[in-house]
Design a binder for these strands. Structure first.
Length: 458
RNA sequence: GUGAUUGUAGCUCAGUCGGUUAGAGUAGUGGAUUGUGGUUCCAUUGGUCGUGGGUUCGAAUCCCAUCAGUCACCCCA
């Protein structure tokens, strides 16, 4: 068979039944924990107005947005804007007014503003849907991937942070992935920038410090200078970058440094409160204060957190933080929110790499009826119905093919039981039940089959 | 946006120094076994060697271009 040249877009994937069952295992686990913690589901459309999305993810994010061409004659109206013809940034709004969502948080903020009168605050929602980014794909990075978000909006309490960390802990415990939760606070990062007198360079500073693990201290300092910081400023930064000891002593050291930064002090206080509250939970995960953690999304204002798998080299598999004024942009001020986002696809890759998917993610048929022909089929159909009524997944092979082929089908699909009914069985008013794992078979009555022989999924 | 690397059967991959009709495993199909799968044995289908050009008597192999995948940087789940 000559295969036609077909393909799917870069960074997208098909999922086979085996993969889907494994993905669903991840989704079901996360969903169950979200519900356990009192979060309710919502969904939002795949596409949003570009005015909703643009400017929320920084300049880089705007570039990575998938834009949707206007329908109909999208060139209409371009004529009047001659300057747009040579500048794609000016052209874009003329020919595109919608885009695929980049994450679930910004659409959520839009949702809250639009539905504010129907919602009861604090509002706790979860949402598990795909998002799209026009990135160059690589390991653990796709152009279409799922995020599983839980956010609570309309509450300033740091208990929310603790609860979200409880969700994280529970999910990864259930998935059998060892993780470290890294915790930081945007106010501490602001405090650092204020302390060295470069408050406006906070993004450059945090991005550079974020790379400490990866490229080392010298390179970080190089980058800081490249970004326009003076030698003295970089020198002033050293004690902070090199902060050592356990979380508590790091906080004490910072506290002394931040004497003049109110924001920095507040960040430390928040961090202490979260850690204190954590002490009253049963969280098992390692939680560490990481001064270098600086998540890119620029709407975070308070705590930021990130989760890494201990045993696999992979980007973060979950991240989140607090945003004090995300809905403000859409006209609803003073709504503080905090949320987390699980990267389901990366979690899949981690489980795959560690070979840690459970055996029984397959939801296969339990009983297959072999098809010998019309007469035999009609003899079996009522039985098939009976099994299904009892909640046992069963199917009849649709064509009267060779038994060998039908058996192979059962085998390939991991169907544990096969019912064979031919002329002999019909005469005796019985059926042959074969166990595909052991290869044993026995002749039993019709009643026996529905009673106890075949069970629902173990 | 920058850099590296790989494209050979549905899948995983061999293919020597450029040499005749491009191979293996696996999957598929048929049979050994017409009422029995998973194990075994036999047979068999399946290839524009990513695509286009060039060098050469001769190219899967060398050169150029192009497309696609993968990985890394930037950034990020």
């Amino acid at each position: 068979m000559a295969s036609p040249k077909v393909s799917i877009p870069k960074g997208t994937r098909d999922f086979t039944p085996v993969e889907m069952n494994r993905r669903n295992y991840i989704f079901d686990t996360i969903k169950s924990v979200f519900q356990l913690y009192g979060y309710s589901p919502i969904e939002t459309p795949s596409m949003e107005n570009l005015s909703t999305l643009m400017g929320k993810y920084g300049e880089e994010g705007d570039k990575l947005l998938f834009k949707i061409l206007n329908s109909g004659n999208f060139l209409e109206g371009v004529d009047n804007h001659t300057e747009a013809k040579s500048d794609y940034k000016k052209m874009t709004p003329l020919i595109s007014e919608k885009g695929l969502r980049y994450d679930l948080t910004v659409p959520f903020a839009r949702f809250v503003v639009m539905h504010q009168n129907e919602l009861t605050f604090p509002f706790k929602r979860y949402q598990m849907q795909p998002v799209w980014r026009a990135d160059r794909p690589q390991k653990g990075r796709y152009r279409e991937f799922y995020q599983c978000d839980a956010d609570v909006i309309g509450s300033n309490s740091l208990l929310n942070e603790t609860e979200l960390m409880g969700i994280i802990d529970r999910v990864f415990d259930m998935l059998n992935i060892k993780t470290t939760i890294k915790l930081n606070n945007r106010k501490i990062l602001t405090g650092i920038a204020e302390y060295i007198g470069e408050a406006d360079k906070i993004v450059d500073i945090t991005v550079a410090i974020d790379k400490l693990d990866k490229i080392g201290l010298d390179k970080v300092n190089e980058e800081l200078i490249a970004k326009g910081l003076s030698q003295e400023t970089v020198a002033k930064l050293q004690p902070i970058i090199n902060l050592s000891g356990d979380t508590q002593s790091k906080l004490c050291q910072l506290e002394k440094i931040f004497t003049s930064s109110e924001t920095g002090q507040k960040g430390i206080a928040e961090m202490r409160e979260i850690l204190d509250l954590l002490g009253y939970t049963e969280i098992k995960a390692v939680v560490e204060f990481d001064i270098t953690l600086a998540r890119g999304l620029n709407y975070y204002t308070g705590s930021i957190l990130e989760v890494k798998a201990d045993e696999v080299a992979m980007g973060s598999i979950c991240g989140g933080g607090r945003y004090d004024n995300l809905t403000g942009i859409f006209g609803l001020p003073d709504m503080s929110g905090v949320g987390i986002s699980f990267g389901a696809d990366r979690i899949y890759d981690v489980l795959q790499e560690l070979n840690r998917f459970p055996e029984n993610t397959q939801t296969s048929t339990q009983v297959l009826f072999v098809n010998f022909g019309e007469k035999e089929m009609k003899y079996c159909l009522p039985l098939l119905a009976k099994l299904r009524k009892k909640g046992i997944s069963a199917e009849m092979y649709p064509d009267p093919e060779k038994i060998k082929k039908q058996m192979s089908y059962a085998n390939a699909n991991n169907i544990p039981w096969v019912v064979v009914v031919g002329e002999t069985e019909m005469l005796e008013n019985k059926l042959t039940l074969k166990n595909m794992q052991g290869g044993t078979q026995e002749k039993i009555s019709l009643q026996e089959l529905t009673k106890s022989k075949v069970k629902t999924k173990k």
